[in-house]
Design a protein around this nucleic acid. Structure first.
Lengths: 115, 115
DNA sequence: CGGTATCCAACACGATACTG
DNA sequence: CAGTATCGTGTTGGATACCG
């Protein structure tokens, strides 16, 4: 099992920050979005990107994001079913925030290893 | 009671995003940091900024952020005790990410009202 | 492959009451 | 003013097993 830090995110509707945090505040949500940021990916690819996310949570996160219009789910009618997830315009609008988060995180990591 | 959306944030150590989300992924954490972004504030001021945060959560959030080095807690030896919270350098490093989040959220709100 | 259903335990939150 | 302690509650995520 992976070391985990869990916290809850509660947000107030109508405020900009909440508007955004509602979309990316979910458990593992930023990771999923990040995986999708460079193009469409399949379910199993996403799972490989983030092996520590259980299938249940991955599914629920994807469904959630789909309902919120952040990504689309395309089922290809192949013999072994293939499903592709892709960010929508709305999803892509979230990327700057995610990139900022990653950028800040990277700086913090550097700082740690430097210190 | 306020409409709430709750989600958990689980993060993996060693990855930039987790590094940052660990710091601002907590419940109400972005709101608190945002309140502090323009200068030191007292406990009661913070509570007024975000009336929907219970005292217990506010305290725990502040303690947490203090331990992580995101903010400092200064107790002034006045007769009614006065406590001021202020962002540290680390805390200020998080602001760009928060600003991005707010910026994206604002755009999303506009989009909503326009649509 | 891409899920879904069930069970389960862990938190983390809100409310309340009390303190220096 | 600025908390802390306690209780009760509910959501949520992990694990496991199963399906088209």
């Amino acid at each position: 099992m992976v070391l985990k830090v869990r916290k809850k995110v509660v947000a107030l509707p109508g405020c900009p920050m909440s508007k955004c945090m509602n979309l990316l505040g979910g458990c593992w949500t930023p990771e999923v979005l990040w995986s999708l940021s460079e193009g469409p990916r399949r379910f199993s690819e996403l799972r490989r990107d983030s092996p520590f996310i259980s299938a249940k949570v991955m599914t629920s996160r994807l469904r959630d994001l789909e309902h919120r219009g952040v990504l689309t789910r395309n089922v290809m009618p192949t013999s072994p079913p293939t499903v592709e997830y892709e960010l929508t315009g709305l999803g892509k609008e979230l990327l700057p925030a995610i990139r900022s988060i990653v950028a800040v995180g990277s700086r913090l990591l550097l700082r740690d290893s430097t210190a």
